[in-house]
């Protein structure tokens, strides 16, 4: 004859205060969007929503003629536009420039 097995005391799961957890990233949605898009381009990820075109502003510069000549020469040598060289320099100086806005020669897109 088999012995009677003892009852098993199965306690209910302990309740965890899940509301105390905060999201790990508190950055604005726009920052998360931009970061995700950059990572997605690196990973070759699928993107279903078209990238919004940034609003374009115009910046007119007055620079010494010798500097303009250097810019023009460098642009010719590198097969890029002077605008690209200026934006590239701003990025190197620490300004936030999206990768999509750093185009060597936008005229080639047309």
């Amino acid at each position: 004859m088999k012995p009677e097995l003892p009852p098993i005391d199965v306690a209910p799961r302990k309740r965890v205060d899940l509301r105390s957890l905060q999201p790990p990233t508190t950055a604005d949605d726009s920052v998360v969007e931009a970061h995700s898009r950059r990572l997605a381009s690196e990973w070759g990820a699928v993107t279903t929503v078209p990238t919004p075109k940034p609003v374009i502003a115009s910046l007119r510069l007055e620079i010494p003629e010798y500097l303009d000549r250097q810019l023009a020469q460098a642009a010719f040598d590198q097969r890029v536009t002077k605008q690209f060289l200026v934006i590239q320099a701003l990025k190197a100086a620490g300004f936030n420039v999206d990768a999509a806005d750093l185009v060597p020669d936008k005229r080639k897109r047309r």
């Binding site: 999201p23 790990p24 970061h35 995700s36 997605a40 070759g44 990820a45 699928v46 279903t48 929503v49």
Partner: peptide, 15 residues
């Protein structure tokens, strides 16, 4: 499934 911008956005806000 797959790599997507959607997934990357969600990962940013996940514990």
């Amino acid at each position: 499934g797959g790599s997507s911008t959607l997934a990357l956005k969600a990962l940013h806000r996940s514990n």
